[in-house]
C-alpha cells in the first residue's frame, strides 16, 4: 500500500469524476426544470395561470384598441373641424375681400366719352351681385360690404369715386362668376344695358376665362361693433338637460 502506486491514478480518476459529477449535476438541474419533467398538477396550474394572464392581456389589448379607436376618431373629428374652419375662413376672406381672387367672369369697359354717372356704376355692380357674381372690383378697387361709390366735383369736372378714390378712365369693372349668367343679368331687356343705351352709352362687355381681382386696400377696423348675444332665458324648460350651457 505504498503511496506511489495509487496516489496519481486515483487523483486523476477523482478529478474526472468531479468533472463528471458537476456536469451531470448541472444537466440534471436543467433536465428537471424542463417542462416535460414537470408534474401534471404543476403543469395544470401553470396552464391555468398562463391562460388567465393571457386573458387579462387580451382584455387589455381590447381596451387599448378601443382607446386607440376613440383617439383616432376624435383626431379625425378635429381634422374635420379644422378643415371646415379653414373653409369658412376662406369664405370669409373672399367675402371681406382680404385676399386676391381669380376665376372666370366678366369685364365691363367704360370709356371716357360714355355718359355714365356714379349711379350707373352702382346699378351695374348691383346687377352683377344679383346675377350671382362672387367678387367684383372697379378699377382694381375691390367692392365689399363697406365700399362707397360716389362722386366728387371740382371747379371744372366731376368724377366718380370708389371709397373716395377717383376713378381713372377707362373704368374696368371685373366680376367673378358664371360669365353667361352675369352677361344675361346685365343685358336682360329693360335691364341696365338697355337703360344705358337710352343715353347712348354702350359699355363693352367681355367674357373672360381667367382674371384676377385684387384684395381690398387697408383693413377695416371695428371699434364700436361687437357681437350681440341674446340674453339667456332664466327659466329654462325642465325638459332640457342641465349639462347644456
Amino acid at each position: 500500500m505504498t503511496r506511489q502506486r495509487w496516489a496519481v491514478p486515483m487523483t486523476v480518476v477523482f478529478m474526472l469524476i468531479g468533472i463528471l459529477l458537476s456536469l451531470q449535476f448541472q444537466a440534471q438541474n436543467r433536465f428537471a426544470s424542463d417542462l416535460t419533467m414537470q408534474r401534471t398538477e404543476n403543469l395544470i396550474a401553470m396552464v391555468r395561470d398562463l391562460s388567465e394572464k393571457r386573458q387579462k392581456l387580451a382584455m387589455e389589448l381590447i381596451d387599448l384598441n378601443n382607446k386607440l379607436r376613440t383617439q383616432t376618431e376624435s383626431d379625425r373629428d378635429e381634422k374635420k373641424l379644422f378643415d371646415s374652419l379653414k373653409e369658412e375662413l376662406t369664405k370669409m376672406r373672399i367675402v371681406n375681400g382680404t385676399i386676391e381672387l381669380k376665376g372666370p367672369g366678366l369685364q365691363i369697359l367704360i370709356d371716357r366719352h360714355l355718359p355714365v354717372l356714379y349711379i350707373d356704376i352702382i346699378h351695374i355692380v348691383n346687377e352683377l351681385w344679383a346675377a350671382g357674381a362672387e367678387a367684383i372690383s372697379v378699377n382694381d378697387c375691390r367692392i365689399t360690404g363697406s365700399t362707397a361709390i360716389f362722386y366728387t366735383e371740382d371747379s371744372h369736372s366731376m368724377s366718380i369715386t370708389v371709397d373716395n378714390v377717383k376713378l381713372e378712365y377707362p373704368i374696368i369693372i371685373r366680376a367673378i362668376g358664371e360669365p353667361n349668367n352675369l352677361e344675361k343679368g346685365l343685358t336682360i331687356p329693360g335691364g341696365i344695358m338697355d337703360n344705358l343705351a337710352l343715353f347712348n352709352a354702350y359699355p363693352v362687355i367681355t367674357k373672360v376665362d381667367e382674371q384676377k381681382i385684387p384684395a381690398v386696400r387697408g383693413r377695416q377696423q371695428f371699434y364700436f361693433a361687437s357681437e350681440y348675444k341674446p340674453p339667456e332665458k332664466p327659466a329654462a324648460s325642465p325638459a332640457q338637460p342641465a349639462t347644456k350651457p
Partner: peptide
C-alpha cells in the same frame, strides 16, 4: 489529500466549463 484535492479541482473545472450536456 491528493485525491481529495483532485476531486475538488474536478468539481471546480466542471462548474467552470460552459459546455452543457444536451438534455
Amino acid at each position: 489529500i491528493l485525491p481529495v484535492m483532485g476531486l475538488i479541482i474536478g468539481v471546480l473545472i466542471g462548474s467552470a466549463l460552459t459546455f452543457q450536456v444536451p438534455v
